[in-house]
Design a binder for these strands. Structure first.
Lengths: 198, 198
DNA sequence: ACCGAAGTGATGGGCTACTCTCGTTTTTGA
DNA sequence: TCAAAAACGAGAGTAGCCCATCACTTCGGT
């Protein structure tokens, strides 16, 4: 009854598929067929289905891997900065930049429901400490949560069309909403805290 | 060489198709087949293709009609309010509410590239006067443009998952970014002002 | 070295967007 | 009112893709 860990080559192949998916989706967008991804990975298409269930499974896995490797480190890098508020803004800007540079992957993730506030929040956890410090310093409003930072990333990227550069203006607008304010934000809508995605 | 205007029944049918598309997409989301929409409209599917070219054409037309009929009036209604800043916030909130109530249609529009800042801006024109008045009253920052208001709508809705209520908290956050500020926003990225969509 | 887990490539079913044709209906304008 | 023109409907047909399955091969841990 002990969990069987997957075989070594299975892990290698899963990784190859994910890498290929990231690259191909980035370049060619959500239109590419699964066969194309499998071909790029040098893996049979049947294997892809065995490992990931269906097309959306591949896209979800690819996006989450990308997020963990490219975005989460940005949050980690912000932890030790002297200027908490500045580090917060920098981390968010860098995250938006790299995501905007992966427009095709991002679009695919959106269509597969993989680009949500929940997912972003999962990888922005390290920003929690920075946020707290910035709040204690009076640099940002006190009623913010980490989830709001994740939402800012999602919102800033909503305006990015195909081929657009990063939507700097709107991100700046969003960052300016972090300033302390007398009005309190309404409570988040009553989400159960269950994680819906896989 | 005078422009032929389409026949009366052709216009009627186009309208029937658009109405059916709005209703069906709202209820069933982007997954519905074109044949289903045609059936609901009581129109042959070949006619749908004749009039709108392809699937995305139908969705674009449906979304724009919805926008013109349900969202633009909200902007018009705000024009004569005494409190310009309040009217601005109300109009944006109401726009986000109705769009959130049409989640399926919205999702389809996004997938077809019909829900863009450009499209929103096209129908938010009437808010220009209100924005100016609010700026003169010092209620909102001076470097805002109508396009930014359109972007706020797009951004606020980016966080709406399927079945979510309107994302009030994030809209409130966005509205708080309208407050006057000492920092200037960066210029909008160098969009040509050509309208890409149809 | 063995045996089960994992992979392979091929095949096929099912679905949907889209096209074409042609006989039929509706509109238009004189 | 009537004939030409325009639009329509229905169905068949094409093509591409997702996904499942199968019979067989390869690989890896014990």
């Amino acid at each position: 009854m002990h969990e069987q860990r997957p075989r070594a080559d299975a892990l290698r192949n899963a990784d190859k598929i994910v890498r290929a998916a990231i690259a191909v989706l980035r370049e060619r967008g959500p239109e590419v067929s699964l066969e194309e991804i499998a071909r790029q990975a040098g893996i049979g298409s049947a294997t892809v289905y065995r490992r990931f269930g269906d097309r959306d499974g591949v896209i979800r896995a690819a996006f989450q891997t990308y997020f963990a490797e490219e975005v989460e480190p940005l949050a980690l890098a912000a932890r030790d900065a002297a200027d908490a508020g500045g580090a917060l803004a920098e981390a968010l800007t860098a995250a938006v930049d790299t995501l905007a540079a992966h427009a095709g992957l991002l679009k695919a993730a959106r269509q597969s429901g993989a680009f949500t506030v929940d997912i972003a929040e999962r990888f922005m956890g390290p920003l929690g400490a920075v946020l707290t410090r910035a709040q204690e310093a009076g640099q940002v409003r006190a009623d913010l949560r980490v989830r709001d930072l994740a939402a800012i990333i999602v919102m800033a990227l909503a305006t990015a069309h195909s081929g657009d550069p990063a939507p700097r203006r709107y991100l700046a607008l969003l960052l300016s909403s972090l300033r302390p304010s007398d009005d309190l934000l309404p409570e988040p809508s009553g989400h159960p805290l269950l994680k819906p995605g896989a």
